[in-house]
């Protein structure tokens, strides 16, 4: 993982740090698309093959989550849009043609992906590839919280690249104060959220974007149109019971643009929006 990891733990639980790092390593080895040997790479490699790719039970549960998330977000949450993400890569920093977008859009769409919980298998259509980057980091943060609690640790904070999960099980009187980075000045938070439980995840355009001819393009691509979202909000932070849920709500909020507030309100949770100036 290329993002900073921060653990805030009571000193008596400092021995958990190494096992936690190890857990992250295992998950990265399993779900990273940069790792040739990962399960995700194996899934992508077998795209178009009849025999499909074998899964483990944990991945099946994540796919169940994706199924539900895809539906409830009205197809705005879709891990099969890797082709689009690659096309709009900020490393390429080039605006693709409409034809290119249409072509990439043809190899995207979660409803084309077939998988079976009973057989523990997935069959990706030819040309498809998946990217779990949109939710695995959040899932790992939740798993670390679970691990820490199992080990008897009942207070602390886990920060995986800006996604922050509290280990605290009970809403304590003294919540953690989590700062939201300011768009222009990441050293000075523009706001604070009190986190006594659950997690805060942020989806934003300010960290990764590219500018062509004075116009900046978000790295967040709408799975429905195939184009980067228009930047109404610089970032959306969501506070929810789990990091996985917070991250999902924030990401979809960014894609929903004008409907973001309506979307986040129906999730019945706290959120924080940073608008563009």
């Amino acid at each position: 993982m290329t993002c900073p990891c921060e653990f805030l733990l009571p000193i008596s639980f400092s021995h958990l740090i190494n096992p936690m790092l190890k857990k992250i390593e295992v998950y990265v080895a399993k779900y990273s698309r940069f790792n040739e040997d990962s399960l995700l790479s194996a899934m992508n490699r077998t795209a178009g093959e009849v025999k499909g790719c074998e899964l483990d039970i944990e991945t099946c549960h994540l796919l169940e989550f994706v199924d539900m998330a895809y539906e409830v977000s009205e197809k705005n949450f879709d891990p099969s849009v890797k082709a689009l993400v690659d096309l709009w890569s900020f490393k390429r920093a080039k605006i693709p043609s409409d034809d290119e977008v249409a072509e990439a859009l043809a190899s995207c769409g979660w409803h084309f992906v077939r998988w079976s919980k009973r057989q523990k298998k997935i069959w990706l259509p030819k040309g498809f590839s998946l990217d779990f980057g949109g939710f695995v980091k959040e899932y790992i943060a939740d798993q670390l919280v679970r691990f820490a609690r199992q080990q008897g640790c009942c207070s602390g904070l886990i920060n995986l690249g800006g996604d922050i999960a509290a280990i605290d099980e009970n809403r304590s009187d003294s919540p953690w104060r989590v700062g939201i980075s300011h768009v222009k000045d990441s050293a000075h938070p523009s706001a604070y959220i009190d986190v006594a439980y659950g997690a805060v995840a942020t989806s934003g355009s300010y960290e990764r974007q590219f500018t062509v001819d004075g116009r900046s393009y978000s790295h967040i691509i709408s799975p429905r149109t195939g184009y980067p979202v228009e930047q109404i909000y610089q970032s959306i932070s969501v506070h929810h019971a789990s990091c996985l849920m917070s991250g999902f709500l924030a990401t979809v909020g960014m894609i929903k643009q004008q409907q973001a507030v309506q979307w986040l309100t129906s999730a019945n949770t706290d959120f924080y929006l940073q608008t563009c100036v």
């Binding site: 989550f65 998330a69 409830v72 849920m245 999902f248 999730a267 019945n268």
Partner: peptide
Amino acid sequence: QKQLAKLSSFVSSLL
């Protein structure tokens, strides 16, 4: 709203 609540409780049980 109902679907989101369902997803949220699925995630809790998953975790």
